[in-house]
Every structure is written in C-alpha cells, then in structure tokens.
Nucleic acid binder design. Structure first.
Length: 885
RNA sequence: GGGCGGGUAGCUCAGCUGGAAGAGCGCCACGCUUACACCGUGGAUGUCACAGGUUCGAGCCCUGUCCCGCCUACCA
C-alpha cells in the first residue's frame, strides 16, 4: 500500500496551521441542531473580550477539547459552544486608559459616544483570545460563537431581569455595598478580595455628655468616626449596663450620640465598647437598622470626605485619617495606639481599598434560588467532580447574601427600568417604552446603571443556544452535558448558572461540572504578570508544538491538585512527539509493500497477539479514565503503551519479520497487525494530540479524505483479549531482560555475541522458548541458544532466573568470575528478603484464617517462586565458588 | 475563627474499593544495532511528615501533633 513519506521531524508550526484550516474547511467542528445521534454539549467558560490566553485558559480549554474530541469520535452529536464575555469593568478600564492617552475622559465623550468607542475597540482589538484558542487546537463550533453583549444575549438578559422583577425576585434599595472609589461602582461581595494589612488599632476616648467620665472605643479606621451615630456595648456587660441610653460627645464633631446595647458586641474585645458608623461599615449598617440609628455617609464616591465630615471636607480618606489622628492626639482623645493586623477589602479588578458605602442599588433575592441550586446537587441532577467541592458549594450557598447586580458603569447591559418624570411610575420592560403606561407621559428616563457582567454570564448555557427563542439547538443541547472550569469561579459563575438555569429553564444547566485546579509555576506560586513568573502559552506552543503542550497540561491534571507548570516537562513530551513521529516513519516505511487485499497467509504471531491484547487494555484504560475525568491516568496509560510497549518491544521484536527475515507470509501478517495497531493508537491519542495524529493518519492513509477526528474512537474488542499469550510473551520478555541484565552488569561488550543455555522446567515451557528463540536471539544479541528440560547447570556461567526457568550465560573468556559472584550475592539478598516476608505471612495462623483465599493463594505462589529463585541462585553461587577456589 | 487540600526516590508528582512502593526528569555504566542520541540497553535511589490506634495485613481507614498551601468569616 502507498503511504506518504514522512520528513525528518514533525514540523509542528506548519502542520498546525494547515490542519486547523483543513478541519475548519470541512466543518468538522460543527454540531447539528437536530440529529439522530445522542447530543453531547459543553459551553466554554467565556473568556473576557479583553483577555489574552494565559496558562489557566490553556489548561481549561485543553481539557474541554480533549473531552469534546473524545465524545465526537464516540459518535455523539457534539457541540462545543464558544464565545466571549463583555467584562464590564475590565473593558471599560481598557478603553478609558486608551482615551486618557488621547487626553480625554469618558465624560468628555458622553455615554453614547463612549459606548460606540468601546464597540470600536472590541471590533479592532477584542477577541484576540479566540485566535489563540485556535492555535491550541480547540474544536469549538465557531459558527455559533456568541458574545454576552450581542443582540440575542442582551435580549435574554432583559427577559430574565423582567421576569425576576415581576416575580418579586429583584428589588431596589438603599443598602450598604462594596464601593470601589477608583472604578466608581458598587461591586458584589465576591468581587472583594481581602488582604492582610499590618496596621494599628487606635483607642479613642468618647466623653459622656453629662461629664460623668468617658467610654473608650477601638477602631482600625479612625477617619470613619466623623460619621459615628452611636456607641454600642453588650447588653449584659456589667461595666456598661448603667451607661446604656446615655449620650457621649463625638470628639472632633462635637455632637451627641447615644450609647446603645446590642449583643453583636464582643465583651472581651478591647474595651468592650464599639463605635458605630452605619455609613461606612456593613455591620454597623445592620445595627443601625435594628436600632433605627441615623445613617451618615461622610465620603463621596471618590473616597473624599464630604460636607458631613466637618472640617475634614475635601480631604481624601487616607489624608483624613492622618489629620483625624493628629487632632485626636492634640485634643487629648487618643488613648493609645497598638499594632494590629486585620483584613482590608480590595477591589479584585484594581486593588483599590473598598469603601463600604450606602447607595441605591438593585439586588437579586438569592435565598430561594440558592435553595433550588443546592437541591439539584443533593439530588445528583448535577454532579460535581471532584465531589470534595460539594461541601464548599453547599457552604457558600447556605451563607449567601443578596446579590448586588447594579454597576455604575457605562459598558454593559443597561438595566431595563425607566422612570416616568410625570407620574414617578417605574416601568420595567423587555422593550424600550415610548410612553408611560400609567399617565401616558413621554419624559422617561432609563436607569443609569448596568448589570453585573456575571448576570449575563449566569444565563450563558441557555442564552447562547438561542433563548428566549425556543430554538432547536436549545431543545437538543440543554441541559448541557458537562461544564469544565477552574474552581476559582465556582461561586462567581457555576453557582449562579445553577441558580438561573433552574429558575428560568426549570432544569439544571449542566449534568456534570468538572472543576480543575489552578496553574502555578515550578515553585508552586500563582503565576502573575507582576511577579514575572508567568509562562506564555503561545511561546510554549511555538517552542514545543501545541500537541506536546496539550499533552503536558493533560498529564498534569490529577484531580484536586494544583498544576505546576515547567517548560522542561513540556520539552519531555516534545520528545514523545518525536518518538511517535519516528515510530511512524518505521511503521510507514515497512508498509510500503503491504498488500491489504491479499489473502492472509498465516495467523498472528505471538507478538502480534500480545500487542493487540495490550492495546485493548490501553483502550479500556483511556476510555474509563476519560469517562471519570482522570486525565493524568489517561495520558500515562497511552504514553506507556506507545513508548514502552509498541516502540520498545513490538517494533523491535517485529523487525526481522518486517525485513522478510522470517518468511514472506509472516511479513504480511505482521504488516497487517502493525498497521491496525498503529492506526488505533493514533485514534486513542487524537484527543490529546490532535495535530500530530491527524498528520500521521493522513500519511498512513495517503489521503485527507477521512479525518481522524471524525473516525470512530476505538472500542475494546473481546477478540483481542488473550491472557495466555500475554503471559507467554511476558515470559519471553523477561528472559530477554534477564540476559540483557547479565550483559550489562557483567560489562559484556554489546559486540560480543553470547551463546546461552536455558533450562526449562517442563516440555511446555521448552516449546514456548523454542518458538520464541528467534526473538530472544535477536533482542539479546546471541550467537546461539539451546533449551533443555532440567538442564544441569554448567560450570563458569552467570545465572539468571525467570520463574521456573533458569538462564545460563557462559562467562569463560568474557569476564572474571568475581563479578558474577558479586552480582549473585546482590540478587540473593533481594530474594531472601522477599522470601522471608512471604514465609512470615504464611506462618501467621491469623493470616491463613482471615485473609481472602485468593490473597493466600497468591502469597503461596510468591513464596514458591522466591524459594526456587533462591535455591537456583544459591546453587549458582556455590558452583562459582568451587571454580574460583 | 471555621472549612478544604497537601507533606511518598535528588526534583515534579501518580498511587482509583487496604493485600509484594511507581512514573517522568535527573543520576551512574555501556552503546552511533539501517525509526528516533529529542535515542537504546542495564543500574542505583524511599523509617510513604511524626506519634498512637483499628486490622491477619495500613502510603491508603481512625485519633492526635507539626509543617505548607488555598478558600471562607461582621470581633471593631
């Protein structure tokens, strides 16, 4: 048969480009809206439109592609839905920075013009990551690519908002929220990151208004005292019981505030009294609501003290802190300062310290949604893998607070709420209203805020499939089969998709979710630009090829473990690619004169049967591993098969047959087996190394008519199972290894062809060895091989033992006898340790009484083997000593 | 403060339901054998963090301790 000639090495860069285009051209990535085949769908975790491919994306998308290609080859109607996220804050930041280089702000442009600029930016620079995903080999259905801000998805957002609003699940109100003074927007609890700050605890004296002494409070944020509206103590605190209801004078502000009692206060912290600033602290805000306290905001949206801050007006919050402290000191109110470590909340986007502020925001009532989302996991409607994440999921859901969904940004889905200036009616609608349905007035103002980006992301599994339209795609692919994502967005995204999917679609968004770990550097540190330890995936692809890179990521993915990426390991798998390439060259070269149509002259030889049995086991392992998302096991299994079974043994042992040194018939039989095994092996490897396998598949078939990616994934074949032949082949392999071992240990030069004698325990073993003698002679470089049943050990030989078989390598004239003596002694020590262990176990009556029968049988066999080996080695040693004298 | 994960060969890590400790890299020796030196053949290397316990049997199960990560939390 004709195969394509292969070059010296796999040219990954050239091949990747060519083959990806080939796949696209043939629409192999495209899923059918309607099909007889069973559907299998995954939605991509949409990368930010501003994003550049980093290691996290590379890992996440490689795993998705592995599963998608695997399922596609298994015959499913496979959809991998791609797309991007509009990333409200991030994108707005990028465009604002660009504008500031031009010397303008978004306010100079106005809202409409600014948004137009963002779209312009998106068209020009946005979505580079899509092309980067293509370089990884991702087989997404690009024809379906969606964007959270596109028309359909925006409609979905409105529909959901209106539905939630109408059903009382969305409300608006003045509450304390996390405010970022730099981004000028509220953010959700999740978007706040806490960092430890080595600061101070300042103790401040608040005198009683009636002059009867004072009360000392401690704070980490003295500047907020400007907005204090109470001092709280524990109701049971004997020190303060009598003071409850009295007033203290707020220093610097000279106003009276009450002393109240609330069991939120911890008696044994500090003085047991705490200042209450409802406008600047969420706990204090809650207390203010319980006690009907006045709520004063002393800062504006930029973190600058406003008119409620008295003489500090106009000062930035850090400057105000300094001045407040100085004044307190000066006026004798500062009692003490102690070093204190506490956590400061920062904006996850820009690292600015968060300022808790009271403002009017929109919220989603979350408890009812969370309840359903938990039930779905409890009832296994959605399976979380690894299951250990379930407790984290439940814990978060149980302690969840209402979701603040409004953002004071311009880029995003504008809240579909209008206010009528004529009758102050509120209109919540999916379509922009022209006039007020209540009074008919036309002066309508739309709410200025946009929605949290995660709001639209939470709809992703159904909005991308066409909802609110009832599309065929939606019917076919929802609920999706699987979600693969990093555990870091379990709350941000996974949990919210669960809630929205169940609420809107009345069904879970995905039947399973696989959470993978984070990619770190070699030292285990999180990769980041600022640390300078990040590895660019694209550089890795350029350097080692996408296949080696993907294989590395997959091989690193053990459940529940961080991925520590190092270029050395990628290089190692590049060597694996090279190994496969060369094995392919050998394979293909030896198929040149193979006539597939010719009748088969003989049955498979022992190595042929063996390699198929091994391949069968590999198919089973790879399939099971992928079914269970045990990615590292899948790669280990296939790596071992290709390198150590196919290359190291099968190809080597088959060479004589392939070179026609056995018989013409045998050559053809081996060609047939080799071709089949090689082709199957490529298919097994395809999900991990799509480019290399496609290239070799086409070379093997000398055609690009049928892509490997739409070929049928190998299935286990009962006819390939053969435990007996496997065992026989293993015996031959062990004999070969034993002779090689003696050669190596005894420093017998490879050029020296040995004459070996083998003693078989019985006629059956003798026949086996004789049948395989060609393999043994060839692979252990022998001049001659003689096999007898119970051969008497000759003098001056090195002895090897394989089960009941004894191998004698004459040493006369080759090496000194002392070397063999050392080798035997070493071997003997090892065996006697095994022997002792087994004997001790079997001598234990409890073991015999309680262990499973098959374990006992196994142990007995082990003992027998050790005993035989021991006596053989001992005998050999004795003989050697006789010679040596 | 709670929760989770981890501590196995020099390094990075596997080890699924408890039954003779594994891989890759590195290391040592030998080798240009007509696919591959990005290779081949052979070899060395472990008180499985520590202390108890359960069990005939523990890297794996239980208890405690010590380190190291991460997540979460309203003690000012």
């Amino acid at each position: 048969m004709i195969t394509k000639e292969l070059g010296k090495a796999f040219e990954s860069a050239e091949a990747e480009k060519r083959l990806y285009e080939y796949w696209l051209k043939n629409k192999y990535f495209h899923a059918q809206d309607k099909s007889d085949a069973e559907p299998f769908s995954i939605v991509i975790p949409p990368p930010n439109v501003t994003g550049m491919l980093h290691m996290g994306h590379a890992l996440n998308n490689t795993l998705q592609d592995v599963i998608i290609r695997f399922k596609r080859m298994q015959g499913y109607n496979t959809l991998w839905m791609p797309g991007m996220d509009h990333a409200g804050i991030a994108t707005q930041n990028v465009v604002e920075q660009k504008l500031s280089r031009e010397g303008i702000s978004r306010h100079d442009l106005g809202r409409e013009e600014f948004i137009a600029r963002v779209w312009e930016w998106k068209e020009q620079y946005g979505g580079v990551i899509i092309n980067q995903l293509k370089r990884l080999g991702c087989s997404c259905d690009w024809e379906r690519e969606r964007f959270t801000m596109d028309e359909g998805l925006s409609q979905a957002v409105r529909e959901v908002f209106v539905k939630l609003y109408n059903e009382g699940m969305i409300y608006q109100g003045d509450y304390i929220v996390n405010w970022c003074p730099r981004c000028h927007t509220a953010i959700s609890d999740l978007e706040v990151e806490f960092v430890s700050d080595a600061s101070f605890l300042w103790n401040i004296r608040y005198p009683f208004a009636d002059g009867s002494g004072e009360i000392v409070v401690a704070t980490t944020r003295p500047e907020t005292m400007l907005g204090d509206t109470a001092v709280a103590v524990h109701p049971d605190d004997p020190r303060y019981k009598s003071k409850i209801g009295k007033s203290v004078i707020l220093p610097l502000m000279n106003k009276e505030i009450p002393v109240i009692a609330d069991d939120y206060v911890t008696m044994d912290f500090g003085s047991g009294a705490v200042k209450i600033t409802p406008g600047s602290d969420p706990n204090d805000f809650a207390m203010a609501q319980r006690h009907n306290l006045e709520i004063i905001s002393v800062m504006d949206g930029q973190g600058i003290i406003n008119e409620h801050g008295g003489r500090y007006k106009g000062q930035d919050r850090y400057e105000a802190r300094k001045n407040v402290l100085a004044d307190l000191e000066k006026e004798g109110y500062l009692v003490g300062t102690e070093p204190y470590a506490h956590n400061v909340g920062q904006c996850y986007r820009c690292r600015t310290d968060i300022e808790p502020m009271v403002s009017k925001q929109w919220f989603v009532k979350i408890k009812p949604l969370a309840k359903q989302a938990m039930a779905a996991v409890t009832k296994k409607k959605t399976k979380i893998v690894p299951a250990s994440w379930e407790s984290t999921y439940f814990d978060w859901m149980n302690n969840i607070r209402d979701w603040c969904i409004s953002r004071q940004l311009w880029w995003g889905h504008r809240i579909p709420v209008w206010y009528c200036d004529d009758c102050s009616n509120i209109i919540v609608a999916t379509v922009d209203p022209d006039s007020c349905p209540t009074c008919g007035g036309t002066s309508l103002r739309q709410d200025e805020d946009v929605l949290d980006t995660w709001f639209s992301s939470s709809l992703w599994p159904f909005s991308t499939l066409g909802w609110p339209k009832r599309t065929k795609a939606l019917k076919t692919f929802y609920p999706t089969s699987l979600l693969i994502t990093g555990f870091d967005i379990l709350f941000f995204w996974v949990a919210r998709m669960m809630m929205m999917g169940i609420y809107i679609m009345k069904d879970v968004p995905f039947k399973a979710v696989y959470l993978h770990a984070l990619v770190r550097d070699e030292k285990g540190e999180k990769m980041s630009k600022s640390k300078g330890n990040s590895i660019d995936p694209l550089v890795m692809i350029d350097q080692y090829g996408a296949d080696a890179f993907r294989f590395t990521l997959t091989a690193y993915t053990a459940q529940g473990r961080d991925v520590r990426m190092s270029p050395e390991r990628i290089e190692g798998y590049k060597f694996f690619v090279n190994k496969i390439w060369n094995a392919a060259k050998l394979t293909l070269n030896n198929l040149a004169d193979y006539d597939e149509s010719a009748p088969l002259p003989a049955a498979d030889s022992l190595p042929d049967i063996w390699i198929k049995a091994k391949l069968n086991e590999t198919i089973e392992e790879v399939t099971r591993s992928l079914d269970e998302y045990r990615f590292n096991d899948a790669t280990a299994s296939i790596y071992n098969f290709i390198w150590h079974e196919y290359c190291d043994w099968y190809l080597e042992i088959s060479k004589p047959a392939l070179y026609g040194k056995v018989s013409p018939g045998q050559k053809q039989v081996t060609q047939r087996a080799m071709k089949e095994v090689f082709a199957t092996m490529l298919q097994l490897l395809h999900p991990f190394m799509p480019f290399l396998t496609e290239e070799l598949w086409q070379a093997l078939n000398n055609s690009d008519e049928h892509s490997i990616m739409v070929s049928r994934f190998p299935a286990v074949r009962e006819s390939w199972e053969n435990k007996v032949s496997e065992k026989e082949m293993e015996t031959l392999m062990e004999i070969i290894t034993s002779i090689r071992n003696i050669r190596g240990e005894m420093r017998i030069p490879p050029s020296h062809k040995l004459g070996v004698l083998i003693s078989a325990a019985d006629a059956a073993v003798k026949t086996l060895i004789e049948t395989g003698s060609g393999y043994i002679v060839n692979l252990s470089n022998l001049a001659s091989l003689k096999v007898e049943v119970n051969l008497v050990e000759p003098k001056g030989v090195a002895t090897g033992v394989v089960g009941t078989t004894r191998i004698f390598v004459p040493l006369a004239g080759v090496v000194d006898i002392a070397g063999e003596k050392t080798r035997l002694e070493k071997e003997l020590a090892k065996v006697s340790k095994d022997l002792e262990q087994s004997a001790r176990k079997l001598a234990n009556s409890d073991f015999r009484a309680k262990a499973a029968p098959e374990i006992i049988t196994k142990e007995e066999a082990k003992l027998k083997e050790s005993q035989e080996k021991f006596s053989t080695l001992e005998g050999a040693l004795k003989k050697l000593k006789e010679i040596a004298g």
